[in-house]
Design a protein around this nucleic acid. Structure first.
Length: 570
RNA sequence: UGGGGCGUAGACAAGCGGUAAGUCAGCAGAUUUUGGAUCUGCCAUUCCCAGGUUCGAAUCCUGGCGCCCCCA
């Protein structure tokens, strides 16, 4: 999968057992050497990074073996699905960089075919109409350790089943009064095989088929047959469906239909966040986040808003591999992927998050000048820009210390540092606030001979600071995001505990008095920038406006100094 | 007292009978007008445990143990 922004994704995909299976099937000429996969989301939630793993796998395999991947909405449940989700899913898959072409399908389009299959099974004596209520059915099902009992309706004659099923379809019976069940084995150790329900009655409007149907197929029944109808060769799903495979196979075998091969892989877990639909829904509904696309959410919509790139996400998916083992991928891996991507292409800019005023006493009052700054040292083609310098500047509060520890080599009284692309400055004095004793501003002198940042006499400084002109910078709002949860695995909660209690109270900090270089007045919404020495940011796609930029922090830069500080605390 | 799956470093993950790849993290150094980036070196005598087979086992066999999923 190539994109204009990054052409190196997926060129040499690492080996994994699913690729081996597909590759072998291709080599042995199975399915005529064709590979057709599918991504089958249920349109009842937003896609998250766990889905991205599946999307990358399915579309990636199809691309690698010259096949294709279908996008199929598994919209068999009329009560839970909404157009909002359908739209967001399509947007997210496209954003990730994949294209299903004209292969957009809906399971609901197969309702008629699915119905015919069901009648075929009835005629074959492999399915029956059951009058057990929901509760009775649960009773009859048995438990993990005890076999179930056969339904008293199990041996209805074929003709009666056919008649009843047709009347179910025509709307003669109320919701829940009857189901169509497969006749398999009530004593199976695999509970999925204990005469599973194929159809239930639901007098509900379906968003696509309207009121045409009042019976709807169950997932297990609809899914495999949909795969079959589409000629899918490899039906790739997550491990929890491994138990369902015997049923998947059973339907197809009894029907004598084209039989795709189901393969299961372990779903993705990411540290410090949650990826279950139920939990994400709770975060949204209980207002812990500002909706599905809150930049802290692991949804693709949220990650996009946060500023993560599709390249980074695809790279992550490749790096983590595909296996059957349950795992918890460290968020650090994702962060590495974004840094790696953005380092190559994000233009560098200067912005001061927590400003501290610096006055250059020996710089002429009223004077101003423009200095050359390199847009991206990693990309010579990115060119240069002019940054305004003046007598009064802002630097980062944390770049100055009155009484620095030994390892701090930024600005301090009497010490000289470099202002990036500008001059060497030396701190001469500190002015404190009237009451609090807080540092109000610092006074420095500059060395005119160091213009641009080089010293003709070869003297060295230990630090280079970013800065902005007090007068010629513009205000900006910056939102600092951190992980949503404080513990690595919020799913792993003790008895009676709620994952909500592990929410990170500091997952969002909004800074409103930031100053950024004037070029950022035109920051492109959704564009990516590296604030030198701080991190990668995106101009918020919704809130950022010309002249009034709003930035989201995607990820910090690696920072040796915070590491040192942490080490010293210990 | 059923069925299915999984156990290789702090986190991922190759390996498929010939003597433990790679990535992230970590550590050390070089370099650096971002304490960024880059570069170099280090980081599992051992693969859940115990037996067995073999000249040789992470890989094969037997028996344990642990974790996950399925009745919701």
């Amino acid at each position: 999968m190539k994109t204009p922004e990054s052409g190196d994704v997926g060129l040499t995909p690492p080996p994994n057992f699913i690729r081996s299976i597909v590759s072998e099937d291709v080599n042995t000429g199975k399915n005529g050497g064709k590979v057709i996969t599918r991504f089958p989301p249920e349109p009842n939630g937003y896609l998250h990074i766990g889905h991205a793993k599946s999307i990358c796998l399915n579309f990636g395999l199809a691309a690698e073996f010259g096949g294709h991947c279908n996008l199929r909405f598994d919209d068999t449940n009329p009560s839970k699905e909404e157009q909002e989700y359908v739209d967001s899913i399509m947007e997210d898959v496209r954003w990730l960089g994949f294209d299903w072409g004209d292969r957009l399908y809906y399971a609901s389009d197969y309702f008629e075919r699915l119905y015919e299959f069901a009648e075929a099974l009835i005629k074959k004596g492999k399915a029956f109409v059951c009058d057990l209520t929901f509760d009775q059915m649960r009773e009859y099902r048995g438990t993990l350790n005890t076999p179930g009992k056969e339904s008293p309706y199990r041996n209805r004659p074929v003709e009666e089943n056919l008649d009843l099923f047709r009347r179910m379809r025509s709307g003669e019976f109320p919701d829940g009064s009857k189901t169509l069940r497969a006749k398999i084995d009530m004593s199976s150790g695999n509970i999925n095989m204990r005469d599973p329900v194929m159809y239930r009655i639901k007098h509900e409007e379906h968003q696509r088929s309207g009121s045409k149907w009042c019976i709807y197929p169950m997932y297990d029944y609809a899914h495999g047959q949909s795969d079959s109808l589409e000629g899918v060769t490899h039906s790739i799903c997550t491990m929890e469906y491994e138990d369902h495979r015997p049923l998947y196979d059973w339907y197809l075998d009894e029907l004598g239909a084209y039989h795709p091969r189901q393969c299961e892989f372990a779903r993705l877990n990411l540290s410090n966040t949650v990826l279950s639909k139920r939990r994400l829904l709770r975060l949204v509904n209980e207002g812990h986040v500002a909706g599905w696309s809150d930049p802290r959410m692991p949804t693709l919509a949220g990650m996009r808003r946060r500023g993560y790139t599709p390249e980074a996400i695809r790279n992550l998916c490749e790096r983590i591999g595909v296996g059957k083992k349950e795992s918890l991928v460290d968020m650090g891996m994702l962060e590495f992927c974004v840094r790696e991507d953005l380092n190559k292409r994000a233009p560098r800019v200067m912005g001061v998050l927590r400003p501290l005023k610096v006055v250059i006493d020996n710089y002429p009052e009223g004077k101003g000048e423009y200095l050359d700054a390199i847009n991206n040292p990693e990309d010579p083609g990115a060119g240069k820009r002019k940054v305004p310098f003046s007598r009064e500047l802002y630097i980062e509060q944390e770049d100055f210390m009155e009484a620095p520890p030994k390892q701090f080599f930024r600005l301090a009284p009497g010490r000289e540092v470099r202002l990036r692309y500008a001059y060497f400055i030396r701190c001469e004095s500190v002015v404190k606030g009237p009451d609090s004793g807080e540092i109000a501003e610092i006074h420095c002198t500059y060395d005119p001979a160091t213009r641009g940042g080089d010293s003709p006499d070869g003297r060295k400084v230990k630090a280079t600071l970013h800065w902005v002109s007090a007068e010629r910078s513009i205000p900006a709002v910056v939102r600092l995001y951190d992980s949503l949860f404080v513990n690595a695995n919020p799913n792993d909660v003790g008895e009676g505990e709620d994952f909500i209690s592990y929410l990170n109270p500091n997952s969002l900090e909004i800074l409103t008095s930031c100053r950024v270089e004037p070029s950022l007045s035109e920051a492109i919404p959704g564009g990516h920038y590296q604030f030198e020495r701080i991190g990668y940011f995106t101009a918020d796609a919704v809130d950022s406006k010309p002249g009034k930029p709003v930035f989201n922090r995607i990820v910090t830069l690696k920072d040796e100094w915070v590491k040192i500080q942490k080490a010293e605390k210990k």
